Structure formats: C-alpha cells, structure tokens
Simulated scan of single mutants.
Amino acid sequence: MELTTVWFVLIAVLWTGYFLLEGFDFGVGVLLPFLSRDEADRRVIVRSIGPVWDGNEVWLLVAGGATFAAFPEWYATLFSGFYLPLFLILLALIARGVALEYRGKSGSPRGWDRAFFWGSLGPAFLWGVAFANIVRGVPLDARHEYTGTLFTLLNPFALLGGLATLLLCTSHGAVFLALRTTGELRAAASRAARSLAPATIVVVMAFLLTIGGPRPVLEGAWWAAVALAALGLLGATAATLRGRDGWAFTASAVAVVAVVAGLFVRLFPNVLPALDPANSLTVTNAASTPYTLTVMTWVAAIFTPVVLAYQAWTYWVFRRRLTGPPAGSR
C-alpha cells in the first residue's frame, strides 16, 4: 500500500475516533438543559465527561496536524475555502472548554451552562455541514482554490448533513449518559435516547443515501458501511428499549464509526472533490513528499500505541456510574 493511501486511512481513523469520543461529549452538552431538573443533576451530567472531554479533543488536533503534514494542498484549500464555518467551530469549542472549566468556580453557573450547550450544538451541526460538502464536492478552480461563497456551503444537502451529525451525536450522548448515571437521571437519558431514535435513523440514512455523485471506487465497502450504520442505530434502539445500556452504547458507537468511515470510503481516492473532476484534490496531487510521509509513518508507529493505551486506561479508571444526591436532599 502506498504511503499516501496509508495516511488517508490514518486521517480517517483519527476523524472516526474524534466523532466517536467527542460525539458523546457534544450530545451531553446538547442534552444538559433538557435532562437536568436542578443544579445537582447538572453537576452529575457535567461530571460524566469531566475526566475525558479534553483528551477527546486531542483527536481533532492530531487529525488537523496530520492533514497539514501529509496533505498540505488539502489542508490549505480546506481551511481557506471553509474558513468561516471552521472559525465558528473553533469559537464554539473555546466557549465550551471555558464553560466546562469555569462553571464550578462561578457562583452562578447557568451562563456557563448556556455556553456549554451552544458550544456543543454548534460544532455537532457544523461538522456535518463541512463533511457533507467535502464528500459531495465544492467548486475549485485549476489552482485548487475554492471559488464559492459561504452560501455555497449552506446548500440543502449540507444542512441535511449537519442535522444528521447533530442527531447522531445527541443520541450517542443520551445512551452514554444512560450508561454513566443512575436513578432518575439514567431514566431520563434512556427516554431521550428512545425519543431521538426514530428521527436519528431517518435523517442519518437519508443523508447517506442521498450523497449522489459518481459511484464510489470502493463500492462494496461503501454499502457495507451504510448497512452497518443502519444496524448500529437499530441495535442501539433495541438495546435501549430493553435497558441494556452497555449494548446500547456499543451499538451507537458502531453506528458513529460506520457513518464516518463510510464518508471517507465514499471520498477515496479524492480528498476534496471538485464539481469539475479535473480540478479535484486527490491522495496523489495533494500529498507531501515521500520522505515526509516516511518520517511521519515512523513517528506515528511509535507514539500512536502509547496514546491509545493511555486513553484506554483513562476510560477504565473512570468507568463507574455516577450518582447524584438522594431526591430528598435536593
């Protein structure tokens, strides 16, 4: 396998890990005002991601850095053409991080809770808008420069993609909260997961099945990913109805992985298709030199297992369910 393909796969893995882990963080933030009855509930909800949320964001940083180093043409075109949406995502992530750090230090945390909510909802929606445009294609000229406007990116299919990722993350967050909490909060999270399930299944599958464009190069893998996403969503719903929180989260995780992996399968061998196929960026014309890719491969081979082992250990340490104060002490 050529190194350009290897790094395309590695970047896909990084983005998949980001949406898998940060996805339930976003969902928890979106659900905060709807599941919490009082400050005690809000503290438990925030604590459910407290030890891991900043580690989950590292996947985004590494994915961006790997894209810059392995496919600089892709990075340059993407971050110039998608500048405003990506800037809004960055602002939302900053607001969200500040809110999580400071809500416990403030005498009035409600303002920070609103920042946490909007800082979670915004990226969950805008990442879907961005990836919908990336996979379907955008207007690029012969120099691989974006020639559209902000409104070009806000097309109906992209908005459908944003709604799909928002619902997917929110549902993922609901099953995560059901897994991590007890009592009335767990029951509320389970009800939210059941309520969100029908809309999530319909919208996510509509998004995947209406991508359009040329037939994917890896057509068998694409349809396998679509089928796995559907099975994951249905399995999460069935497990939630039976009160099997662990299986529900596992099935939801499978669905998230299948959706993101499917988008990258659909994208290959392009990294940013153009409406005029002659101007598309591919794994070949957007890649760094072979020497750069070789050095990066050695670095990744050494340090990636260490990072994965550390993060797995973190989740193992904080695996127990969280409990709030008894109902009579609220």
Rank of each mutant, 00 (worst) to 15 (best):
R180I: 00
A238N: 14
A251Y: 12
L177A: 04
V256R: 10
Y146V: 00
L177M: 05
A230P: 04
A227W: 00
F131V: 06
A253V: 03
V257W: 08
A251C: 15
R143L: 15
V204W: 05
G246R: 15
T200P: 03
P198K: 02
I211A: 11
A130I: 14
G235F: 08
D245H: 04
H144Q: 11
V259P: 09
R242M: 11
A158Y: 02
R215A: 15
R244L: 07
V260Q: 14
R242Q: 15
A130Y: 02
A224P: 06
V256E: 10
A188M: 08
L179V: 01
A164N: 01
M205D: 10
V202C: 05
L179G: 06
L140H: 13
V226H: 09
G183Y: 06
L159N: 01
G183C: 09
T165Y: 01
V135K: 11
A197P: 12
M205E: 13
L166I: 00
R191P: 10
V260C: 12
N155K: 03
L167Q: 01
T237W: 15
R266F: 08
W247C: 05
R191I: 05
G162Q: 00
L267P: 07
G148P: 15
L150H: 02
V175H: 00
V217Q: 14
I134V: 13
A187T: 10
L185I: 05
A158Q: 06
L241V: 11
F207A: 02
A227K: 11
G161L: 00
W222M: 13
R215M: 14
A192D: 13
M205P: 06
G220H: 12
T240C: 11
R215E: 14
G262Q: 05
T240G: 03
T147I: 01
P156D: 00
A221L: 15
A239K: 09
L154W: 01
L154C: 04
F176C: 06
V202Q: 11
T200W: 02
R191D: 15
M205R: 09
A224I: 12
R191V: 12
L228Y: 02
G213P: 07
L234V: 09
L234T: 08
L231R: 07
G262H: 02
R215K: 15
L233M: 12
L231Y: 01
G137S: 10
V259Y: 07
G246P: 10
G183W: 04
R180A: 01
F176V: 03
L185Q: 06
A142Q: 02
A178K: 02
S195A: 08
A253W: 04
L179S: 14
A164C: 09
R242V: 07
W223N: 04
F131W: 13
